[in-house]
Design a binder for these strands. Structure first.
Lengths: 345, 345
DNA sequence: TCGCCGAGATGAACCGATTCAAACCAGAGG
DNA sequence: CCTCTGGTTTGAATCGGTTCATCTCGGCGA
């Protein structure tokens, strides 16, 4: 390893002062063309790369933003992350992606890390509902945008999707397809998104003038494929199968789909299935999955844009709460043939 | 935003010098217990959080390592990332996860970013085979470990999987199941892993004493679900279907599985399918997918451990090349019934 | 009583950039 | 010839930590 090369080495080689080199890097217009060329040549020759931590220390502004998601294994969040990345890199920011793996503990650790790194801002989808311990960040002037978190707090921006409406869309569709014994697979009570979707599902039943018994709830311990499988097995163990299942996300739905198809249940003839998120695997499932689409990329992009806007004019920034409207994508897994409709409808 | 609180504020409140506060933080044993308590109390009261960039500037050592993967959407890499995270956080390091999205351009950008951040080390799965432009990093004493990259370069550590052997396992299995017209779906020529798997597949044919025509190659433009779908459609358009397909990764296999099952092809009776990676979705597919398992978590963990070991004793560090051996996991998608074997065998 | 010792605390120098008031300089105008 | 002006360049101060040579002081042995 050669001795590190600093802005001083560049200055010496180009026969200018360090201030001038800094100007070439940050305000190229104020330095004379000839000088600029000489400095750039020196930078090139030495292979100089700016020491970002030092820059940050002096200037006080970081070029990185943090993104904390509860599950990187869920394609929904990787797509959100892609959107964040796109908007951030346009603004010259890098993204530190942190995975809290549904653990409040780990989430706290990541927030602490980002605070000590003095990142420019943080986007976070909190693991649990309710106020998040983000004082560490905001005490340091690090702005925070909540992503996909239903509780709109007054003191920060947020981006979310109308999950209640999404749940309503899904169940309204199932009722229209003639289903009358619907099970909704939700997640643990802490997960707000799932709770909202469930609320929307109940709305749909009420609005259709059907008795509440039409919709039953089944709680899964987590929103992943393994739990979907288990939920499917639980349903199969029953004497009577429902005629439709609405899952709180696609991972659950894919697991449940596998369990039921493998057991010989015909989807959608015997059992209609609807998921949520419309991840790419949903369309590619054995029986293409009906799902409620969220604009994943757009969610990430918007969240990052809000963050950047806020930090550019922190004083008279008005916090905004952007809510996207989800959209039902009907595929084979819930298209019931005429006789099935008659039979149960 | 309150004025930022620095180590100096802590020192004043605790009535000690800044040097002592720093000692409490970094060498708690050299400071007297009473003083230590007083300082810790002050830190707590003020909510002080260390300014990591400043620390890094002076001490020269960062607490972050970079991980560059070609596709965060691929569960294989998110599992590798989890392994990296586990080992890194044990050693007190944070991970910056970068997604190059199969683009050499973006990969270069990320490497540049990590160099300017002066990270502690970088783990990278290069998009393309061949020497990677990492001088930027190594000039600055940033050690690099190649992950899942077959070309073992002398000047750094690497972690890989014996992909050739994996390919051989897969095709040997298919031959044993009685398949005799096998198509291997590979990726673009730049992707070394896929090429190695293909080579292993040819080995298997040769070792079984079968003519090379038994194995045919089909190139997909990328290793994702969409391309798998397209590859499946291409096969379906043929006059004669092969009796087995070996895909360079599970995403391709899942796409192909969907295309063929949807078209009424029976898997495995008419067509056996084998994937590669054994991602969680593989077991959860409509027809559970036979796949070649790689120790994903272990790969990440080992790579991070090598990196940390190297940076702890950079002088007399001996570069290691760890190669894991893959393992065939047989599931339903390739278990051919007796008659099928006879028919084609 | 004196000197020495070592544990503990101190504070100034330093890391590599940015910033900004001041210096510089060439040419125009008086 | 001198002054003024505006575009360039300079260099020292600074950011918030870490490090280390130096200092303090109570105790102990001579």
């Amino acid at each position: 390893m050669k001795p590190a090369i600093s802005i001083r080495d560049v200055a010496i080689l180009a026969e200018v002062s360090v201030g001038t080199v800094s100007n070439v890097l940050n305000r190229p217009d104020v330095v004379a063309a000839a000088t600029r060329e000489r400095v750039l040549a020196a930078i090139d020759e030495l292979g100089y790369v700016r020491n970002e931590p030092a820059r940050q220390l002096r200037s006080g502004t970081a070029r990185t933003i943090g993104l904390v998601v509860p599950d990187v294994g869920n394609p929904f969040f990787t797509d959100v992350a892609r959107g964040v990345e796109a908007a951030a890199s346009e603004a010259g920011h890098a993204v530190i992606l942190c995975n809290s793996d549904e653990s409040v503990e780990r989430e706290r650790g990541h927030v602490e890390l980002l605070a000590s790194q003095r990142v420019h801002g943080v986007l976070i989808t909190p693991v649990q509902a309710g106020p998040v311990p983000l004082r560490q960040l905001q005490d340091r002037g690090i702005s925070v945008v909540l992503v996909d978190h239903p509780t709109a707090e007054e003191n920060r921006c947020s981006v979310a999707v109308d999950d209640r409406h999404g749940g309503e869309l899904a169940v309204t569709h199932l009722l229209a397809e003639g289903c009358s014994r619907i099970v909704m697979v939700t997640g643990p009570p802490g997960i707000h998104q799932a709770a909202e979707r469930h609320r929307g599902a109940r709305d749909a039943v009420r609005l259709a003038g059907r008795p509440p018994e039409v919709l039953e709830e089944l709680t899964a311990p987590a929103l992943n494929v393994a739990c979907g499988l288990r939920a499917g097995e639980q349903l199969l163990a029953r004497a009577v199968l429902p005629d439709a299942v609405f899952c709180a996300n696609d991972l659950l739905a894919l697991g449940l789909l596998q369990a039921t198809v493998r057991a010989g249940v015909r989807v959608p003839e015997d059992l209609a299935i609807v998921g949520y998120d419309d991840i790419d695997f949903a369309a590619a499932a054995a029986v293409p999955l009906t799902s409620v689409r969220q604009p994943r990329h757009e969610i990430g992009r918007t969240a990052a844009a809000l963050l950047i806007a806020e930090s550019q004019s922190p004083d008279e920034h008005v916090h905004r709460h952007v809510v996207f409207t989800p959209e039902l994508v009907v595929r084979e897994s819930s298209r019931r043939p005429r006789e099935a409709r008659k039979r149960s409808g």
